[in-house]
Design a protein around this nucleic acid. Structure first.
Length: 493
DNA sequence: TGAAATGTTGGGGCG
DNA sequence: ACGCCCCAACATTTC
């Protein structure tokens, strides 16, 4: 068999810890790497689409180091792959599996179409540590609560990362490639691209540097400091994981090595739990694909969420008048990302204080986040909203003022992103005004907006809505009632 | 990976 | 010296 293998890259733009590429190298056959600008790439949000292009560019260079190329094509994936196979004589197409609804629907369509043309398909793991069907309850069901999921997953060993291939056999002839610039992936970013670009760490080398820097520094203190908005205590790897510039098995291997050297290290353990939250999101997206578009818990379908509205627009613009909320949103405009704690606070504010549907917020994040991932984004929003997995037996409403006191005690984070009222605002705070559309006519010297809502009153409103709906049927209420009933019924007369 | 209400404790002021 | 009150700080309970 000397026909070339088509290896279709999507969210696995790396050489290291890439089981598909490792197998392709081991096969000894000519390898034809391809990236396709199909609707799943072209129809995502502006920021992730742009960032994906940067990942493709970096990965092309990496392949060039192996005297290889990344063929670029655009169009329907099934058609592109069929054409490419016809042009090159390839009889086999490989890819790394993805698990969210849209990707699976696309991949299934591609598989069917290619098989019709007599092409062989082979798919590989690598995007997650454990395949979604590998971590199940005793009863054979999928986990709906994080802690038992964590216990089940972390108790087991998972495949080691494969090394980067030293060589990849090129095909006898290179098929034509489109030019990345012609895809205009940056077009939706407008003024944002220049502002956000300096905050990115693009490509496999940058990702590995981040991993090393994290374990050389913040990892030890991660358990204590990861929630602090005013410190750089996180790994920043979400941006790279999204496009597969680093593999989770590589990260897991480093975690295990660190834990072997320092058993019970609380910082490293806490980091492992965050990595497993990502696993949880992907597994949920596989087992309950509706999580991306529908309330994960059906009892939330009657909740009086407001559709998109003027308050939500103020939220998107970082103009709610609630300092921590606006700081978070402006961090997103300026850096393309947001600290996880700020994501929770801004999401809680939109869904509770502004009583706006989580999908409005999830859509905005999908447009803006360079680390946007359908599974993580959906799970995160639904978790905060209350309609998702791992719900607490009470209505979780973050108080932005209290969260600011706890996680930004000196106001450093807020000052970093809120220019108004500062004599000489930091660059990051001013950058927000360069990133947003001019048509908004924002001006850093104008006064900071007054609060959109009274926190206490908005809290009461949300609480009342919950008690009238999901809270009335929540399991804890039922359990409490039945306990009370039992007590009465069982008490001797 | 919540917040507020409620309960407990202990120190200090003061009669 | 003592009891009482107040309140902050912390812990626990409740939603």
């Amino acid at each position: 068999m000397d026909t070339p293998l088509v290896v279709w890259f999507r969210r696995d733009l790396r050489l290291d810890d890439n089981p598909m590429l490792f197998a392709a190298a081991a096969s000894g056959r000519p390898v034809l790497p391809v990236f396709i600008a199909d609707p799943l790439v072209m129809r995502i949000g502006a920021a992730p689409r742009w960032r994906w292009g940067l990942a493709v560019e970096a990965f092309s260079r990496r392949l060039a180091g192996l005297q290889q190329r990344l063929i670029l094509r655009s169009g329907d994936a099934a058609e592109v792959l069929t054409t490419l196979a016809r042009e090159t004589g390839a009889r086999e197409v490989w890819w790394s599996r993805l698990y969210d609804k849209d990707a699976r629907a696309r991949d299934l369509k591609v598989e069917t179409a290619l098989q019709k043309h007599g092409l062989k398909i082979k798919t590989f793991p690598g995007h997650v540590l454990a395949e979604p069907w590998e971590v199940m309850t005793q009863a054979g069901d999928y986990f709906r609560v994080y802690t038992p999921f964590w216990r089940a997953l972390s108790a087991r060993e998972w495949p080691s990362p494969t090394p980067a291939p030293k060589a990849l056999r090129p095909p006898a002839q290179w098929p034509a490639s489109e030019r990345l610039e012609d895809w205009r992936l940056e077009v939706g970013m407008k003024r944002g691209a220049a502002v956000v670009r300096p905050f990115l760490a693009v490509g496999e080398d940058a990702a590995l540097s981040r991993l090393n820097a994290f374990f050389a520094g913040p990892a030890r203190q991660y358990h204590a400091l990861r929630d602090r908005l005013d410190l750089n205590a996180t790994s920043g790897l979400s941006e790279n994981l999204t496009y597969g510039e680093i593999g989770v098995r590589r990260i897991w291997a480093v975690i295990q090595a660190e834990l072997a050297a320092r058993p019970g290290d609380r910082g490293v353990e806490a980091f492992a739990r965050e990595i497993v939250w990502r696993e949880f999101a992907h597994h949920l997206a596989f087992h309950s694909p509706h999580i991306v578009t529908e309330n994960w818990r059906a009892e939330w379908n009657q909740f009086p969420w407001r559709p998109d509205n003027a308050d939500a627009e103020a939220w998107r613009r970082g103009l709610t008048g609630e300092p921590l909320v606006d700081a978070g949103i402006r961090e997103l405009w300026v850096t393309g990302r947001m600290h996880n704690r700020a994501r929770m606070v801004t999401a809680s504010y939109l869904t509770k204080h502004l009583l706006t549907h989580w999908k409005v917020g999830a859509d905005f994040f999908a447009e803006m986040l360079v680390d946007w991932d359908p599974a993580s984004n959906a799970m995160g929003w639904q978790w905060v909203a209350g309609s998702g997995p791992d719900a607490a037996p009470y209505f979780r409403i973050f108080n932005p003022a209290l969260q600011a006191e706890k996680f930004d005690p000196a106001g450093t984070y807020r000052r970093a992103f809120l220019a108004e009222g500062q004599a000489s605002p930091p660059r990051t705070a001013l950058a927000f005004f360069e990133a947003v559309p001019r048509s908004w006519q924002l001006d850093p010297t104008k006064p900071y907006p007054r609060p959109l809502v009274d926190l206490a009153a908005a809290r009461e409103r949300a609480l009342a809505a919950w008690q009238a709906g999901p809270g009335a049927t929540a399991s804890h209420t039922a359990a409490k009632n039945s306990r009370a009933f039992e007590t009465k019924a069982c008490k001797p007369a």
